[in-house]
Each structure stands twice: as structure tokens, then as C-alpha cells.
Amino acid sequence: MKTVVALALTLAPAAAFMAQAPARASVQAQESKDDLAGLAKELNPVIGFWDPLGCLNFDFWGLGNEGTIGYLRHAEIKHGRVAMAGFLGYLVQSTDFVSGPHKILPFKGYEPGLTPPEQWDAIPLVGKLQIFTLIGMLESYGEILPVHYTKGGKPGYYPPIKGNRPELVLNLYDPFGFFEAKTEEEKAKGLVKEINNGRLAMLGLFSVLSEAAAPGSVPVLEGVIPPYSGNVMIPFEGSFSFFG
């Protein structure tokens, strides 16, 4: 719990994204650099528009400049959502509720007292492959769009996983219908908050991982995040057996 409290105080603004569920974008992906310059002012009036690598001038895979902008916009929103889940997950996995002793083991290979990166290492290879398979399925489904985000679709939009099958009763994108009554203007404002929260979460997640891998690299977290001797960039390190 000391880890959780310290992280929450150190990165207090990150708590803001807990109240912000993903909002569907109202801005079309067919945007120009001028449109993004305006959006940048909304996101951060102090920094404003900043593209030091000139990414908005690129042409990925023959998509054209506007298609490339749509790709980059969608990628940032999606990565921000993953980072928000990952940062909160790191906090939760640092508590005794997850890392403490359990009467019933939550998964094969579980050991109490492990840090979040060590918990991942303890999962057998077959379990890790199941996780990556599910991620791949969700990624593939996310590309089945009425209008693709590189062709004028809405960046950040995820199609609802819902249909006539009884087990698919919830829309994964908006399972509780929070956004059904929202106007496009409200969704656009929510998206601005989500992008900022996602950026903060990416910094927060990399901060805890960096401090774990190289103690002292993030001074404000020194002594708060337990060290990790493995390599966070090699997710299958030491996992060469389906039964280990």
C-alpha cells in the first residue's frame, strides 16, 4: 500500500483519467496540419503545436498525408488507452489484494510477494500466448470499421462488440451506455481530456518501469518502486517451455 500511496501522490494528476471513459472522436481523420495545430492549442495551450520530427509530413504506405495523420491520431489515442490501463494495473498489482497470498491460486506459477513485472514473468508461456492471442483478436476486430480512420473515419473509434449472440450483451467500447446521450460537442471535449490523460499515463507507466529497471533513474520514485532484475523490453524472457 505504501507503493500505491506514493505513486498516487507523485503522479496525482494521473487520477484524472479514472473519471474519464473513452469518448468517441467528433473530428474527422481527414485533417490537415492546421487542424491539428488548433487541436494542439486545446490540448496544451502552453506547448501548443510541436512536431520536431515532421511526422505530419510523412506518407505511410501510400495513404497520403491526410491518411497518415489519421493513422497517427488513432495510434496515439489507442496507445494512451493502453497506457491508462497499464498504469492503473501496475498500481493494483502492487497491492496485497493481488500480490498477497491467496487461498486459491489465481494462475499457474503464481507466487505471493512478486512485483508487477515479476508477476508477468511467473505466468507460463502458454498463458502469455493466450493473452497475446486475445490482444490480436481485439486489434483485428478494431480494424473492421464503417469508415476506416485513414479514410475519413473517426480516430479512436472502436466498433461495438455486440450482436445477436447471447454472450455478447455489452458493447466493449461503451458497455454501460455512458455516451449514448452525449452530443458530438461533449464527445469532442471528452476526447481532448482523454488524449491528455493518455499522454500522462504513458509518462507515468514508463516512469515506474524505468525506475524498476534502473533504480534511481526517476528520482521522485527512488525507493518507492521495487527493483526488477529482468528486461521489460523482452516479454518472453526465460519463457521457452509451454509447461514452465
Score class of each variant (00 low, 15 high):
residue 9 L to S: 09
residue 117 P to I: 00
residue 225 I to F: 10
residue 168 L to Y: 15
residue 42 E to K: 15
residue 58 F to A: 11
residue 96 D to Q: 09
residue 96 D to A: 13
residue 53 L to H: 11
residue 144 I to V: 12
residue 163 G to D: 08
residue 120 W to V: 00
residue 185 E to Q: 09
residue 198 G to Y: 12
residue 240 F to C: 03
residue 45 P to T: 01
residue 146 P to H: 07
residue 159 P to A: 06
residue 87 F to S: 03
residue 62 G to Y: 12
residue 108 K to D: 12
residue 121 D to A: 14
residue 184 E to Q: 12
residue 212 A to W: 07
residue 112 P to E: 04
residue 243 F to P: 01
residue 230 G to R: 01
residue 117 P to K: 08
residue 240 F to L: 11
residue 90 Y to H: 13
residue 210 S to Y: 10
residue 107 F to S: 02
residue 211 E to P: 02
residue 87 F to I: 01
residue 44 N to I: 01
residue 146 P to Q: 03
residue 43 L to M: 09
residue 187 K to E: 10
residue 236 F to Q: 00
residue 43 L to V: 11
residue 77 I to M: 10
residue 207 S to I: 01
residue 15 A to V: 04
residue 177 G to N: 11
residue 49 F to H: 12
residue 94 S to N: 10
residue 78 K to R: 15
residue 109 G to N: 03
residue 60 F to Q: 04
residue 16 A to P: 00
residue 196 N to F: 08
residue 200 L to P: 01
residue 172 L to R: 06
residue 178 F to L: 14
residue 105 L to E: 09
residue 163 G to V: 06
residue 51 D to Y: 10
residue 236 F to M: 05
residue 174 D to Y: 06
residue 148 H to Q: 08
residue 108 K to L: 07
residue 109 G to T: 05
residue 206 F to W: 09
residue 163 G to W: 14
residue 50 W to P: 00
residue 101 P to K: 15
residue 167 E to V: 04
residue 73 R to P: 01
residue 215 P to M: 03
residue 90 Y to F: 15
residue 235 P to F: 07
residue 178 F to I: 08
residue 112 P to M: 04
residue 143 E to S: 05
residue 197 N to I: 00
residue 156 G to Y: 08
residue 3 T to L: 12
residue 150 T to L: 00
residue 186 E to F: 12
residue 77 I to Q: 08
residue 75 A to C: 03
residue 168 L to K: 10
residue 237 E to K: 08
residue 226 P to C: 07
residue 47 I to Y: 06
